[in-house]
């Protein structure tokens, strides 16, 4: 079962602004039955201000909640303001979404963009990209934007956010290429993704510390756990699990499947994470 926030539950069970505006100023129709979720957003715009917004959604709880949240957020905004609403804003409004469900918030944002483009009588730039994922009809432009905006760093994350790669999986290599190309051109505020080149132990420690601080600790703390770096010996990274992790039956899985995977991805492919005894 998914762990939905109370806010998601509330907006799923009692969504606001369900329906369709007659003679709307703009319509955004995204998703499809085949994909498993779809959203039709209708806007009433007066003097460049969104005075009403309604939705109809086919999809799971988070898709319905995201749609409800979106309409509440944008009502009263000017079109220019609404244009700046991101999927992260929608997810934040709901107190967060499970990572596998982030694409529901992305769908909300796409519907908004489509409705604004319809109002302005322009063609959506995203639709002009090359289709990468045929199962879900996702273009390279959509993938690139998701990578940049949500700082995605793995194919799995791309799938969680855009659905690309979640069907037959044939486009995974292409997604990896796009990811690498996009990440390497993005001005790097994060730890640079390095190839398996040599690093001194000091460099390794610094990078591992940085990734632990930025990515891993916040994730573990959400579940009441924590982690400390004890030592780095060659490729062996000794860590010590703290808090709820120490009594958690899944801690070894977390260590290998999450901590090690992240460190391999962001620091060095050859790293081996072990628990210091």
């Amino acid at each position: 079962m998914w762990e939905y926030t109370d806010k998601v539950q509330q907006h799923f069970l009692h969504p606001e602004n369900v329906g369709e505006i007659e003679n709307p100023s703009g319509i955004g129709d995204v998703g499809s039955l085949a994909c498993g979720d779809a959203l039709k957003l209708t806007l009433q715009i007066e003097d460049e201000r969104i005075v009403d917004a309604k939705f109809k959604t086919f999809g799971c709880a988070s898709a319905i909640a995201s749609s409800s949240a979106l309409t509440i957020m944008i009502k009263g905004m000017t079109v220019d303001e609404a244009e700046k609403v991101t999927n992260e804003d929608i997810a934040d409004f709901l107190g967060g979404l499970p990572k596998e469900k982030m694409h529901c918030s992305v769908m909300g944002r796409e519907a908004l963009e489509a409705a604004i483009a319809d109002y302005r009588g322009v063609i959506l730039p995203m639709a002009e990209g090359e289709v990468v994922c045929e199962c879900f009809g996702v273009t390279d432009l959509e993938v690139i934007r998701a990578i940049k905006e949500s700082e995605l760093r793995s194919v799995e994350e791309i799938t969680n956010f855009t659905k690309a790669g979640g069907g037959c999986g044939k486009c995974e290599d292409r997604l990896r290429e796009i990811l690498q190309a996009t990440v390497s051109e993005t001005p790097v505020t994060l730890v640079q993704v390095e190839g398996p080149k040599r690093m001194t132990t000091l460099q390794k420690i610094k990078k591992i510390e940085a990734v632990l601080e930025r990515e891993i600790k916040p994730a573990l703390r959400k579940d009441g756990g924590d982690i400390e770096l004890v030592d780095v010996d060659g490729d062996f990274v000794m860590v010590s699990l703290r808090g709820a992790c120490t009594s958690c039956a899944k801690s070894q899985t977390t260590l290998k499947e999450y901590v090690e995977k992240k460190l391999r991805e962001l620091v060095l492919e050859s790293l081996i994470v072990e628990e210091a005894k």
Binding site: W2, F12, L13, F58, C60, A61
Partner: peptide, 14 residues
């Protein structure tokens, strides 16, 4: 038809 299973299950869950 035309509705999604998770949404149905969560309503049944109530």
């Amino acid at each position: 038809e035309f509705v999604e299973g998770e949404a149905i299950l969560l309503h049944m869950n109530l």
